[in-house]
Simulated assay, not measured.
Amino acid sequence: MTYSPPAVWENTVSGGKFANINSPTAGARHDKDLPVGEHPLQLYSLATPNGVKVTVLLEELLEAGHDCEYDAWLIDISEGDQFSTGFVDVNPNSKIPALFDRTKGANVRVFESAAIMLHLAERHRAFLGESRPEMLSWLFWQMGSAPFLGGGFGHFYAYAPEKLQYPIDRYAMEAKRQLDVLDQHLEDNEWMAGNYSIADMAIWAWYGQLCLGRLYEAAEFLAVHEYEHVMEWAKRIDARPAVRRGRMVNRTFGDDESLKLPERHSAKDFDR
């Protein structure tokens, strides 16, 4: 059936997964304070790709000897936790991840995953790549490109109430183009910006996990094996102990119970 848009759009029930939390308006929907732990860094997140970016970085920083202990609190987006008054105070956009940084008595909020990663990497002068302009370029490439992979391809391929060929084809083409961009770059480069950096972590959380079969069950559909340089890069990152820990934090879904750590308050939590 062909859709003819009305003169003025009106909100209707969209259906599909997460339809119950979608709304054309912003702001808090219920009163609830956020929990606060003992560490200077208070992270409020979920182990989606955007959340994994930050927990991987925090675990990498800790493994490298930096002082950045953190509490990671679960935000269950399916239950609408991101619309509490407490969460909206730290991120008015109601998206995970969000961070309160109380280092040295400050009370700084940081939201958007790339902003959090830059904030932490710059503070510790770590994982900034050999070329800062190159690292920033790839970091923001990820921020601009991944919505086509997630909100575009992922939504219509995995979550929409019905399968429609046009949007799936449209976004599959773009997802494969993006993978080809990465593959051509990684053919001549071990890492995205000279050495392992936050650009690698951010891109891996989306595209690396896609190639490893962890997003949308779409690896075969997108023929990810064609991107051999991306696959090699994704496996190198996946083998890092800090990356495995970062994947676990704020994770409540999946069949592997050993990868689930809904909250993280110290390194000892991984022992459980």
Results as ranks from 00 to 15, higher is better:
Trp191Ser: 02
Leu136Asn: 02
Asn91Trp: 05
Asn189Arg: 10
Leu118Arg: 07
Arg177Met: 09
Asp81Ala: 08
Asp269Asn: 04
Ala234Asp: 00
Ser84Tyr: 06
Glu263Ile: 04
His66Glu: 09
Tyr159Glu: 12
Ser14Pro: 07
Leu164Phe: 12
Arg125Asn: 15
Asp180Met: 13
Ile237Lys: 06
Ala72Phe: 09
Glu257Thr: 09
Leu261Cys: 10
Tyr3Met: 01
Leu58Val: 04
Glu112Asp: 10
Gly129Arg: 01
Glu112Met: 04
Pro97Leu: 03
Glu232Ile: 14
Lys53Thr: 01
His119Asp: 02
Val13Ser: 15
Glu174Leu: 14
Pro35Met: 13
Ala172Trp: 07
Ser197His: 10
Thr103Arg: 13
Ser131Phe: 03
His155Tyr: 12
Asn91Asp: 08
Asn11Asp: 13
Asp256Met: 06
Val8His: 11
Asp31Gln: 08
Tyr44Met: 04
Leu128Pro: 00
Trp73Arg: 05
Ala199Tyr: 11
Leu99Gly: 03
Leu99Met: 03
Gly15Tyr: 08
Thr85Trp: 04
Leu34Cys: 07
Gly37Met: 11
Thr12Asp: 08
Ala219Asn: 11
Tyr207Trp: 12
Arg109Pro: 05
Trp138Arg: 06
Gly151Thr: 07
Glu190Thr: 12
Ala158Ser: 15
Arg125Asp: 15
Asn195Trp: 07
Glu63Tyr: 03
Arg251Gly: 07
Ser258Leu: 02
Tyr159Leu: 14
Phe111Met: 03
Glu60Leu: 12
Ser145Gln: 13
Glu257Ile: 15
Phe18Val: 12
Lys53Tyr: 09
Tyr171Met: 01
His265Glu: 02
Lys53Val: 02
His119Thr: 02
Arg214Thr: 08
His265Trp: 11
Trp9His: 12
Phe153His: 01
Arg236Asn: 11
Pro6Phe: 06
Asp101Glu: 08
Asp256Ala: 03
Gly208His: 04
Glu59Ser: 09
Ala205Gly: 10
Phe270Pro: 01
Ala7Ile: 02
Ala28Pro: 08
Gly129Phe: 08
Phe140Gly: 09
Ala218Cys: 04
Ile75Asp: 07
Glu217Ile: 03
Val108Tyr: 01
Ala26Gly: 11
Arg247Cys: 13
Phe270Met: 09
